[in-house]
Design a protein around this nucleic acid. Structure first.
Length: 109
DNA sequence: CCCGTGACGACAT
DNA sequence: TATGTCGCCACGG
């Protein structure tokens, strides 16, 4: 599990507060691999084997669209987000800009 | 070792 | 504004 890259993504993802969401690009940027936003998502795919589990449902794309719901298996992702108080409509996070949690900013200090 | 794939994002048209 | 294309780089076959 010493996959540095994956582990790094998981670490940041776990720092996402409940009721908040972030984007793959934001995490990638925080890791210094802003151009490799895909790698973040790729790592998330393997997050299922990560311990403790990673709240991947709090990670959405730059548009606040639940692109990952397809991998969660239906409306599970949307359900989880709404359960945390995140309003989701048509696979899109409402108030995304307000709920957006940017590690590069929140963890800046 | 080489090729294809992918939970994204920015830029070009 | 919408659609298309390229780049990014790790992992599996």
């Amino acid at each position: 599990m010493e996959d540095n890259f994956f582990d790094r993504v998981y670490e940041v993802a776990r720092l996402i507060p409940p009721g908040r969401v972030t984007s793959y690009g934001a995490i990638a940027s925080y890791l210094g691999t802003k151009g490799s936003s895909r790698m973040v998502g790729y790592a998330m795919q393997a997050c299922g084997k990560a311990l403790p589990p990673v709240p991947a449902h709090r990670v959405v794309n730059r548009q606040g669209l639940l692109t990952a719901k397809f991998h969660f298996g239906g409306n599970l992702m949307e359900q989880l987000l709404q359960s945390e108080g995140v309003k989701v409509m048509d696979d899109q996070v409402q108030n995304f800009k307000t709920l957006f949690w940017d590690p590069a900013v929140e963890l800046a200090l």
